[in-house]
């Protein structure tokens, strides 16, 4: 089973657009979910929605999360900590630009790479 990818943006349009690009460039072999916007439908990120996205993209191989601005990272870290213990260690937050990171992480995941490799390939974009 391939590593899943979760895209967390402040904007639902950015999140959806990045997911569209992943689907077009990588295809359907990778579990993929996205979330953008806050509880009230404005710009922002929401822990419950991030938890739902992680659930939707869940893979026993793990999940790599791509984020945009600081609050997306803070809320994603919070969401990871709220996961059940058996899932917590199998989710990573990549330090990569959200669109490029999502595409390259998904491409790596589609080849069956383990979570650590998927994350490393995305993080290289920021190196």
């Amino acid at each position: 089973m391939n590593v899943g990818i979760v895209i967390v943006s402040h904007s639902s349009k950015v999140a959806e657009g990045a997911a569209d690009m992943v689907r077009q460039m990588v295809g359907d072999s990778v579990p993929l979910a996205y979330t953008g916007g806050d509880e009230a439908g404005g710009l922002g990120t929401s822990v419950p929605r991030i938890l739902e996205a992680i659930d939707a993209a869940w893979s026993d191989a793990g999940v790599a999360i791509l984020v945009d601005l600081g609050g997306a990272e803070t809320n994603s870290e919070m969401a990871v900590e709220m996961l059940p213990p058996e899932r917590r260690d199998r989710v990573v937050i990549c330090n990569a630009p959200i669109v490029e990171g999502a595409v390259i992480a998904a491409a790596e995941a589609s080849g069956g790479s383990p979570l650590e490799t998927v994350r490393a390939v995305a993080d290289e974009l920021s190196a």
Partner: peptide, 18 residues
């Protein structure tokens, strides 16, 4: 704290929740 995390949203939800 968990209630705040799950309902506040924004960046301050995780901060107060934590």
């Amino acid at each position: 704290g968990q209630k705040l995390v799950m309902t506040m949203g924004g960046a301050s939800g995780p901060l107060y929740g934590t």
